[in-house]
């Protein structure tokens, strides 16, 4: 029981990170109907920028405390957003109106470019980072087993909820969010009503990258490692989460992320750690076969 509770906590905090990334996949898919396969690498870039920020803060003895972590988050979001914008501008926008597979192939290329860029500029070794946030709250004690909600997990849960709250407000309540939803439904019509759709699409990439930066920063702080290849497996899992939740659905992405996080954690806890990725990707296959629209996705009805 205590063990299961601990796994639940671990699963939720991992799932929230997946959810943050999945939102980026699903948002871009919703607006321009492409899977941005470079999104996982944007997450990796976010982790690296956070690492650089942390190390420079440490070298000037400023690291420590929540203010510093907030600063790191802000730096990572700002720079990663710039990467997101650039990727869209140079690799996807010129291909708009081209055949459907073109931006997809370009995205895979962009993913390789980002990985190699980081590998060359930062080195191929795994970068360790000592824990920045130690300790936690003891929730329950069962014999020797202590159920702990670490401060790190609290940080993940609180900051994810805060970021998602701002994001939800942005999409549902503001003019910008309305424009994004309009582009999602009928881009040409939105354009004819005066909306600059190119800019709206750019903003979707910027926002998606900023969310991925939060995920990257939290992932780095939680697991204490970063390497140029980390975006691949995490990215594909977040993609799985987006598909499970129903690609195109924002609440679905968060729900899917939580489910994937929980499934992966419980699988590792009760079955086999080695096969945790297999478990996660089996979900992808099963979803695609039995529930192609995902949990919260809507049926696409083609008008004739």
């Amino acid at each position: 029981m205590a063990y299961a509770l601990q796994q639940l906590i671990n699963g939720i905090s991992l799932g929230m990170i997946y959810g943050l990334i999945a939102v980026g996949y699903t948002m871009v898919y919703g607006i321009i109907g492409m899977i941005n396969f470079a999104h996982g690498d944007i997450f990796m870039v976010g982790a690296f920028i956070a690492l650089i920020a942390i190390l420079s803060l440490m070298s000037s003895d400023l690291m420590g405390g929540p203010a510093a972590i907030l600063l790191v988050l802000a730096i990572s979001m700002a720079f990663t957003a710039l990467y997101g914008w650039t990727v869209e501008r140079i690799a996807y926008r010129p291909l708009r109106g081209s055949f459907r597979l073109a931006p997809l192939i370009s995205a895979i290329g962009m993913s390789i470019v980002l990985q190699n860029f980081v590998q060359v500029s930062q080195g191929a070794r795994v970068k360790p980072l000592e824990p920045q946030l130690r300790g936690g709250v003891e929730l329950m004690r069962d014999g020797d087993f202590v159920v702990q909600l670490s401060y790190m997990q609290i940080l993940i849960i609180v900051s994810t909820l805060a970021v998602l709250a701002v994001f939800t407000w942005l999409v549902t309540q503001t003019a910008l969010g309305r424009a994004m939803r309009a582009c999602e439904q009928d881009r040409r019509m939105a354009s004819l009503l005066g909306i600059n759709t190119d800019r709206t699409i750019s903003l979707a990439f910027v926002i998606g990258a900023a969310l991925a930066a939060v995920a990257g920063t939290l992932y780095l702080l939680r697991y204490g490692i970063a390497d140029f290849f980390m975006g691949f497996i995490v990215g594909v899992k977040a993609f799985t989460a987006a598909v499970l939740g129903g690609i195109g659905s924002l609440p679905g992405a968060v729900l899917g992320g939580l489910l994937i996080g929980l499934i992966e954690t419980f699988w590792s806890a009760y079955f086999s750690v080695q096969y945790k990725d297999v478990a996660a990707f089996s979900i992808l296959a099963l979803t695609l076969v039995f529930l192609p629209t995902g949990l919260l996705g809507r049926q696409e009805i083609e008008k004739v």
């Binding site: 309305r178 939803r181 309009a182 009928d186 939105a190 009503l193 909306i195």
Partner: peptide, 15 residues
């Protein structure tokens, strides 16, 4: 924009 409310449709036009 069929999935959005009547009011939202009119607000988008004033974007």
């Amino acid at each position: 924009f069929a999935g959005m409310t009547v009011l939202e449709n009119l607000l988008i036009a004033q974007h």
